[in-house]
Design a binder for these strands. Structure first.
Lengths: 216, 216
DNA sequence: ATTTGTATGAAACAATTGTTTGAAAGTCAA
DNA sequence: TTGACTTTCAAACAATTGTTTCATACAAAT
C-alpha cells in the first residue's frame, strides 16, 4: 500500500478530475481535499499530468474490482453468460462501487487522453472480448462485424443509464428514475436483447432463480 | 443575423467549449479563433458564462436544423415512423451537420449545467415525446414506464456511436469502424429493435425502398 | 463638418494557476 | 546521540486567466 498522503491525493484527484476534467480541476483544490500541501503533487507524482494518469489507473482498479464477472465453467450455457454479463455491466453502471472512479473512466472513454489510452483499453477489452465470445457461442455462423454490432447494441443500452442519467431524469423526473432500479433495468435489457436475437422465450435461461419478478 | 464578430465568437466558443469544456476553454483562445479582441466577449455577451450559455443555444439550433424528422401524416404506419426515427437519430450521431455543435450538446447532456437545463430539455423532449408516441402506437397496452425502458434501449443504441466512438474504434480499429456506416448501423439498430419488439419479420416496413441492401 | 453611437484594441488589474525552493519537522538506522 | 533520509510547509515565481478601462477608429445621423 502506498504512502497515506499519496493515497489521499489519488482519491481526491479522482474525485476532482471526475467532476471537472483535467483542465478544470486544479492542483490546489485536489490538495485541499486531500489535506496535503500543494507541493505534494510534484513531490509524489512529478506534475499534474502524471497525477492525472495515476488517478485514471486508480479509477480503473476500482472499477474492475467492484462487481466482478462470475467465473463461468466451460459448460455454462451462453444464455446464462449473457444474462450474467448484462446484470454485472448494468450493476456497474447503476450501482458503481465508486461513483467517482466510474465517472472518471466514463470521461476517458468519451474523450480519451493520449496518455491513458492503454488504461481505457485494459478496461474495455476484457469485457468486450467476453461479450464477443458469448455472442459467438449464440451465433456461430455470424460474421465478426455483425457480432460487434450486436455487442454495441447491448453495451449501448447499459451505458445509457450511466452516461445519460441526467437526460432520463429530465424526462421522467428524479422520482420516476428511481423506479428504474438495477433489477428492472437488467431484466428489461436482457429481454430486449433476447428478443433481438430471436430468443424471446429464453429469458428464464438468462436469469437467476431468485430474480423471480414481482413488479407488475 | 447577428453582428459578424458576435457570430464568429459564438462559432469559436462552440468549438472551444465542445473540445475542452467551460473551465478548460479560455476566453483568450476563443477570441484568438474568432479573430477578435479579448474584450469582445464582455462587450457582446457580458461575461464568459453568458457566452457559454449562448454557445449552447447556438449549438442547439445547429443540431435541430441539421437532419429533421420527416413530417408524418396521421396515417403513416408506426413501423415506418420508428424506422424514420432511428435513421434520423443515427444519422445525427454518425454524420452530424456540425460536429462541434453535437459535441457541446453531448457534453451538456452528460453533465448539464444549471444555466442550460432548459436548452437541453428543449433538445431532448421533442425527440423523446415522438419516440414515446411511436412506441405507444406499437404497444397500446404497455405501461408508460415500460415504453420509457424501450425508448432508452433504442436511444442508447444510437447514442453509443457518438458517445463511445473512441471505444468502438479502440476495439475494431479506425478502419474497422469506418465499415459501420450510417446505413449499416441504422439497419442493424432497426432490426435489433424490431426483434426486441417481437416484430422481427417487419423490417421492410420500417425501411425506405431505396435502402435495398447491397452490403455483404 | 460635427455629433453621437458602435466597435475594436492595447494595456492593466487582481486572482488563480502549476511549479519550484529552501527550511523545518519527522522518521529511521547506526 | 547523531546523521541520513523522507515528508511537509510557507513562500515565491512566472504564466495564465477573466474582466475592466480608456483611447481610438469607424459608421451613421444631423
Amino acid at each position: 500500500m502506498t504512502d497515506p498522503t499519496q493515497e489521499r491525493l489519488l482519491q481526491a484527484a479522482e474525485e476532482v478530475f471526475a467532476e471537472k476534467g483535467f483542465q478544470g480541476g486544479s492542483v490546489r483544490e485536489i490538495c485541499k481535499r486531500a489535506g496535503a500541501n500543494v507541493a505534494a503533487v510534484n513531490y509524489y507524482f512529478g506534475d499534474k499530468e502524471r497525477l492525472y494518469i495515476e488517478a485514471v489507473k486508480y479509477a480503473h482498479r476500482a472499477c474492475t474490482q467492484g462487481t466482478p464477472l462470475p467465473n463461468w465453467t466451460p459448460d455454462t450455457p451462453p444464455l446464462r453468460k449473457l444474462g450474467d454479463f448484462i446484470r454485472v455491466f448494468t450493476t456497474r453502471m447503476l450501482q458503481p462501487s465508486s461513483a467517482a472512479s466510474l465517472q472518471l473512466m466514463m470521461r476517458e472513454m468519451a474523450q480519451p487522453t493520449a496518455a491513458c489510452v492503454e488504461v481505457v483499453r485494459d478496461y474495455i477489452r476484457p469485457m468486450a472480448e467476453r461479450l464477443q465470445a458469448i455472442l459467438r457461442e449464440l451465433k456461430p455462423d455470424a460474421v465478426a462485424e455483425d457480432l460487434y454490432l450486436h455487442g454495441f447494441s447491448i453495451v449501448g443500452q447499459c451505458l445509457f443509464y450511466r452516461q445519460n442519467r441526467p437526460i432520463a431524469a429530465l424526462l421522467v423526473g428524479d422520482e420516476g428514475f428511481q423506479k428504474f432500479d438495477v433489477e428492472r433495468v437488467t431484466r428489461h435489457i436482457t429481454a430486449f436483447t433476447l428478443g433481438a436475437l430471436g430468443l424471446a422465450d429464453r429469458l428464464p435461461d438468462c436469469l437467476e432463480s431468485e430474480t423471480a419478478e414481482v413488479a407488475r
